[in-house]
Design a protein around this nucleic acid. Structure first.
Length: 258
DNA sequence: ATGGCAATGTTTCATTGA
């Protein structure tokens, strides 16, 4: 079982790139963020032809999340939004796929630590932490995958001194990320030895990608039963190359049989 | 072996992203 998350930065622009990547990597479950599509415009037919069922919640211009499940996998109880948190922004969708609860999440960016968007980010994360604690009571096999917009530790940052206290790296955001872990999840990436300076996002500007000036902000968190099955967790840096890439690379997790 | 912002709508700039 291969589970991936990818912030595609517009599924409209990135559809062919996604289809190519799916064909090359054959994941079973795909969590997408920043689809930037109203539901009526989601490319259901193209993904169906590629072998995937689509579950999605989106809006024009911003946000939008989805879960794709390979044909043949049982999908039930699709639910959009964060329990107990009224939010017009489409940032979270959950589904039970092949017996595990899968959540695709797009954590708010926060813009800067003195902005209203930053306060919204922390409030959103707090609500999601509660949502996770509640969900784990009913779904011991839980994975939340997405763009967390938080680099959890300094080793997830190309230049920690430059980023100290900045949005994506500030201590309150890192504390919010630890709240997700404290709910009973592990960062799958850290279950394994990893190459240093492995990142999942690089700014489009200033040659950030060729210089590897990146952050690791896209994560797959697993509950203990799934962590026990996890045999690999990596980031596909190659997907950031070439013409018109997303600024994010996919994160890939492999799970052995239950 | 990569490449000097990109996507969108309000469209010829402003806004947002991270």
């Amino acid at each position: 079982m291969k589970l991936v998350t990818w912030n595609v930065n517009s599924l409209n622009v990135r559809l062919q790139r996604l289809l190519d990547w799916l064909a090359a990597n054959t994941p079973d479950v795909v969590c997408l963020q920043e689809t930037k599509l109203e539901d009526a415009k989601f490319p259901v037919a193209a993904l169906d032809a590629a072998g995937y069922a689509s579950h999605y919640t989106g809006q024009k211009t911003y946000n939008g999340v989805a879960i794709l499940a390979r044909h043949g996998l049982a999908v039930s109880d699709v639910a959009a939004g964060v329990d107990g948190f009224v939010d017009e922004q489409k940032r979270l969708i959950a589904a039970t796929v092949a017996g595990m609860r899968v959540i695709s999440a797009y954590v708010p960016n926060g813009q800067s630590i003195d902005s209203d968007k930053y306060r919204y980010k922390l409030a959103w994360c707090d609500a999601v932490a509660k949502h996770l604690r509640e969900t784990l009571k009913h779904h011991p096999a839980l994975a939340i995958a997405g763009d967390f917009n938080v680099a959890p530790e300094d080793r997830d940052v190309h230049d920690p001194a430059l980023w100290t206290g900045q949005v994506l790296c500030s201590e309150p955001e890192r504390a919010a990320f630890r709240e997700f872990l404290d709910a009973g999840l592990v960062d799958s990436f850290r279950l394994f030895d990893q190459p240093p300076k492995t990142f999942s996002w690089w700014d489009y500007r200033m040659l950030a990608f060729p210089k590897n000036h990146g952050l690791r902000i896209d994560h797959v968190l697993l509950s203990p039963p799934l962590a026990a099955r996890c045999t690999a967790s990596r980031i596909d840096r190659n997907a950031r190359k070439g013409e018109k890439p997303s600024d994010h690379a996919p994160a890939i997790v492999e799970l052995g049989d239950a």
